[in-house]
């Protein structure tokens, strides 16, 4: 059984900060990031990735476990001076992070034509809402990314 170690060294914080900056500007909210929870997200995602027992898991698995733990542990909260409130902010940031991984990295199982811009707005909205309102597991979210970003 292989041990995955390539994500242990990734610092997600700059990416999460950049997504939050975009959300602050485009959705007009004010956000806070809890670094301790973000660190937990990384740790739990890494644990789940290792459970697959693959030395080189494909990017869809990485994306699935990351967005699962992000929406589960919710490292983003609202600043006191935020004038707007968007309920599914953690789900949005988690989904953008995982789509970014699928967009940027391609492996043997990736669909070379996968492009986030081609995903219909309706599907993105449904996905974010579903992540907030319904049950998911690391495995079910991984399968969602397999279906959307892997070749078949």
């Amino acid at each position: 059984m292989g041990e995955t170690d390539f994500i242990k060294f990734v610092d997600f914080e700059p990416a999460i900060k950049r997504i939050c900056d975009a959300a602050e500007r485009d959705i007009q909210v004010r956000l806070r990031i809890d670094r301790n929870i973000l660190s937990e997200v990384k740790q739990y995602a890494n644990n789940d990735l290792n459970k697959f027992g693959l030395p080189r898991p494909n990017v869809a698995k990485f994306a699935g476990v990351f967005s699962f733990w992000f929406r589960k542990l919710k490292p983003i909260s609202y600043a006191d001076d935020s004038q707007n409130y968007y309920p599914a902010i953690n789900e949005l940031v988690g989904l953008i992070s995982s789509l970014a991984i699928c967009e940027e990295y391609k492996d043997d199982l990736s669909n070379p034509d996968f492009c986030v811009a081609k995903i219909p707005v309706r599907l993105v909205k449904d996905w974010i809402n579903g992540l907030r309102m319904h049950s998911y597991s690391p495995s079910s979210l991984t399968m969602a990314f397999e279906l959307i970003a892997s070749k078949y």
């Binding site: 390539f6 994500i7 990734v10 610092d11 997600f12 700059p14 990416a15 950049r18 997504i19 975009a22 697959f52 693959l54 030395p55 080189r56 898991p57 494909n58 990017v59 990485f62 953008i96 992070s97 789509l99 970014a100 991984i101 699928c102 967009e103 940027e104 990295y105 492996d107 043997d108 199982l109 986030v116």
Partner: peptide, 23 residues
């Protein structure tokens, strides 16, 4: 699971580029 054979390393910079594309 069908195993990916390709070596790749996810980096902070790579994720940032992907984030910019998605945004």
């Amino acid at each position: 699971y069908e195993e990916n054979k390709r070596n790749y390393e996810i980096t902070t910079e790579g994720i940032l580029e992907g984030v910019d594309s998605v945004i």
